[in-house]
Design a binder for these strands. Structure first.
Length: 570
RNA sequence: UGUCUGAUGGUGUAAUUGGCAACACGUCUGAUUCUGAAUCAGAAGAGUCUAGGUUCGAGACCUAGUCGGACAACCA
């Protein structure tokens, strides 16, 4: 991945994390090593919120000449699966980042974690509790009331060691014993009230199999994993702010002088309007078949956005634009879409595609004549060259591009008016053909033979107010087009106390349109290739369902549309 | 009646020894256009949660409030 420091850098203000890093560098902290980490739990697919975190962690390291570890936080065998591990690695790579060395796993450190737990017991700072989850929870107190101490809190070190060993050896059932840190049951911080370090779980772990029947809890495992790896800056989201004293407590109990001591820094997670970001709820959408899997193009997952046609560059740019801070935020999804269009505008070849076809017969054009017109692939980038497209007597245009009783501001085709067919001729609508029920079935037009684009004639230079996309009827290929819209109708589907987010699902979030008419050059369009359907939007070939001869296109994002805006005003 | 934390245009993010609030998206004009896209030019929109204080000068510092968020899983 290219870094941003090659170009004469525009002075950019630092975010608060960069300030911390620069301060550390100035003070020669950690011998100027910068090592961050991205620590997903493999219990779901990554989403745009994770993308922010990935860009932050990897971006920070790149900027300051450091590296980033990928570490799977796989301490809960109940929920974690290899499928998720694979998808996470794919998504991080696709975003354009490379982690340092091999991927790491918290489960790689189970032995070390165990040994340290034994040390902490020996030092008198951990004990085995025999009570049930319910009792322990009751004794925990509330945020405003102190907890009470477990009757087993003051067991001897020998007894604790014995019990912990037997926990490890599988002598107890799940839930019968836990290892707890001995801190302070009346701490105003709930997390310091003798938190659980280990629980018994007789489950098969996706990596360690049945080697262990005790598993460390997040608070104990995470910080120690950071420490083992020599992470300098451990960046996480705000909800872990209250965990920081515990993070530091554990660290202090295993720390060796002279080694790197990781520092936890918290930032505000991303919220996107019209979107939910909770992994649990996304899983629910998948399981209830409200969407077609984790990579459904309507999902805010990285794989969903990829399948929809978003580019990694657009997502990186988005992450950069939204910045990093500590206050809660809701980003307008329009900003994400702006970044997607901005990138696609530069790289996507233009093509002609008619989604809702209306046939036009050009009555003064010879019936069997065919011409080839030349069209630029991308006016934003001449180096993308030109292509050729057939023109003939019968063509399709978009139904929306014709109106019988048109308002004055309608620049498209109406009876008696002229319009330019992009890169071809100027035509004039003479007659509307309707069926018995009054539906328009066809238009009869005439063309101006001297108006051909690029011919240089006076007629070709004439200004007409509208330019339409079109496709030759007999040459057109057919395809299925999937029009995706936002999944939720509400700005904050998750933000209503009395209503469930599912109440806001947009039932029109997917419209499947068959038999769309596409220009013939699209015949061999490769899976995942991206196009701008001229005047409509950006589309990409679906990587799963599209087949040669039965193409399927996903709408990535529509073009900005000031016409509907004008219409809505009137 | 706790701990931690935050508060700047509609939305985000800036303002680096305190020096007249900037950028992006969005919105609105207009120009241009063989994409009603893009592009270009411009405009509106906050006086920085409140009240005091320090200072020649405060979004930044101090004090006291107000409002918001997180935390009571053998989840992460």
């Amino acid at each position: 991945m290219k870094t941003e420091n090659t170009e004469p850098e525009v002075k950019r203000s630092l975010n608060f994390i960069e300030s911390i890093v620069e301060e550390d560098l100035k003070n020669n902290k950690n011998n100027n090593v910068i090592l961050t980490r991205f620590p997903p739990e493999p219990n779901g697919y990554l989403h745009i919120g994770h993308a922010k975190s990935i860009c932050l962690n990897f971006g920070l390291a790149q900027r300051y000449n450091g590296k980033t570890n990928l570490r799977f936080d796989d301490t809960n065998p109940e929920k974690e699966e290899v499928e998720y591990v694979d998808s996470i690695m794919e998504d991080v790579r696709w975003l354009g980042f490379n982690w340092k060395g091999e991927a790491h796993y918290a489960s790689d450190y189970f032995q070390q974690l165990y040994d340290w737990a034994v040390k902490i017991i020996k030092d008198g700072f951990a004990y085995v509790d025999d009570q049930s989850a319910e009792i322990i929870s009751q004794q925990k107190g509330t945020p405003t009331q102190p907890g009470i101490e477990s009757p087993h809190r003051n067991r001897s070190v020998e007894e604790n060691l014995d019990l912990f060993t037997r926990m490890k050896n599988g002598e107890f059932k799940e839930g019968e014993r836990v290892l707890r840190a001995k801190i302070n049951m009346s701490s105003p911080n709930m997390h310091m009230r003798d938190p659980i370090m280990y629980r018994i779980l007789k489950r098969n772990h996706h990596r360690t199999g049945n080697n262990w029947c005790i598993y460390p809890m997040y608070d104990y495992a995470h910080g120690q994993s950071d420490y083992i790896e020599g992470i300098t800056h451990s960046i996480c989201t705000l909800e872990f702010e209250v965990h920081r004293p515990l993070y530091e407590w554990f660290l202090d109990h295993v720390y060796t002088e002279g080694t790197i001591k990781p520092r936890q820094i918290e930032f505000a997670r991303l919220n996107l309007s019209y979107t939910i970001m909770s992994k649990r709820k996304l899983l629910e959408l998948v399981q209830n078949k409200i969407v077609n899997g984790w990579d459904d193009p309507r999902m805010p997952t990285i794989s969903g956005m990829r399948r929809r046609g978003y580019t990694a560059a657009a997502i990186r740019q988005f992450a950069d634009t939204i910045g990093v801070a500590k206050r809660d935020n809701v980003i307008d999804v329009a900003l994400l879409e702006f970044n997607v269009r901005e990138d696609l505008n530069k790289i996507a070849p233009r093509v002609m595609a008619v989604i809702d076809p209306l046939k036009i017969v050009i009555t003064n054009y010879p019936e069997n004549k065919e011409e080839i017109v030349t069209i630029e692939n991308n006016p934003e980038d001449p180096s993308m060259g030109n292509r050729e497209m057939p023109f003939s007597q019968a063509i399709f245009i978009e139904k929306d591009d014709f109106m019988e009783d048109a308002p004055k501001k309608f620049f498209r085709l109406t009876v008696g008016s002229e319009v330019r067919l992009k890169s071809a001729y100027i035509i004039k609508c003479e007659k509307v053909i309707k069926d018995s029920t009054g539906n328009i079935t066809e238009l009869h037009c005439t063309y101006d033979p001297d108006s051909r684009s690029g011919s240089g004639t006076e007629a070709s230079q004439r200004k007409v107010k509208g330019t339409l996309h079109w496709v030759s009827a007999k040459h057109a290929i057919e395809a299925e087009v999937r029009l995706y819209d936002r999944l939720f109708n509400d700005e904050a589907p998750d933000g209503h106390k009395d209503k469930d987010y599912k109440d806001f699902i947009n039932t029109d979030s997917l419209k499947v349109i068959k038999n769309c008419k596409l220009e013939p050059s699209l015949k061999n369009a490769a899976p995942e290739s991206k196009y701008q359907f001229q005047r409509i939007g950006y589309f990409c070939v679906d990587k799963k369902d599209s087949k040669p001869g039965a193409l399927v296109f996903n709408r990535t994002v529509p073009l900005k549309d000031s016409w509907t805006k004008i219409q809505n005003k009137e």
